[in-house]
Each structure stands twice: as C-alpha cells, then as structure tokens.
C-alpha cells in the first residue's frame, strides 16, 4: 500500500475472504487474500501517486479516489466481487 498508494498508518481490520486468481500477464494462478483495511488518519478526497518499489508498475501514476460501497461502479476483473461482504 505504501508503494502503490503512498499510504501508511493503516488498520487491517479483518480478512474478508481468500480466492485464486489467474493472472493472464504472468500466466499463473495467484492466491489472493482480501482484507478490510481502514485508514487511521483522515485522507483527502482524491490524490495522485507515482508507484515506487521494484515491480513492473514502478513510475506509473495512479489517481486515487473514493466510491460508495453501497452503490459501487464497475471495477475491473473480480475487484468488486466481494464488496457485499464488507457492508
């Protein structure tokens, strides 16, 4: 989260579920552990962040913002599949 979103001081509240995801880019199955994570400090409504770290997405610019979990827009792949478990 620090590398991808620039976030620190997080509270990992609970584990939502666990699933196997086929990564078509790396052509392998990945075990995904989905956690409900909450920010410990007040965060802005939106911000941009350049990815750090050593992975392939290093240097990409991501734009972050918030969506209402009760009426979420369409998310890529299965990212929205487990939203019903957190509200």
């Amino acid at each position: 989260m620090k590398e991808e979103a620039g976030l620190q001081q997080l509270y990992v509240r609970n584990k939502v579920t666990e699933t196997v995801f086929y990564n078509s880019y790396t052509k392998e199955d990945q075990n995904r552990h989905i956690f409900l994570v909450q920010a410990c400090t007040e965060l802005p409504e939106k911000w941009s962040h350049f990815v750090t770290g050593e992975d392939d997405d290093r240097g990409l610019c991501y734009l972050f913002f918030w969506i209402d979990v009760t009426s979420p827009p369409t998310l890529i792949a299965d990212h929205g599949k487990y939203l019903h478990l957190i509200h």
């Binding site: 979103a5 920010a39 965060l43 941009s48 990409l60 610019c61 991501y62 734009l63 972050f64 913002f65 918030w66 969506i67 209402d68 979990v69 009760t70 979420p72 998310l75 990212h79 939203l83 957190i86 509200h87």
Partner: peptide
C-alpha cells in the same frame, strides 16, 4: 455508520 463507508479505488492516469 457503515452505510457511508467508502472504498478506495484508483485508475491509471495515462
């Protein structure tokens, strides 16, 4: 108040 919970998402700028 969980009804006003918001989820953080992102898009690629480029």
């Amino acid at each position: 108040d969980v009804s006003s919970s918001f989820l953080l998402v992102f898009i690629h700028r480029d």
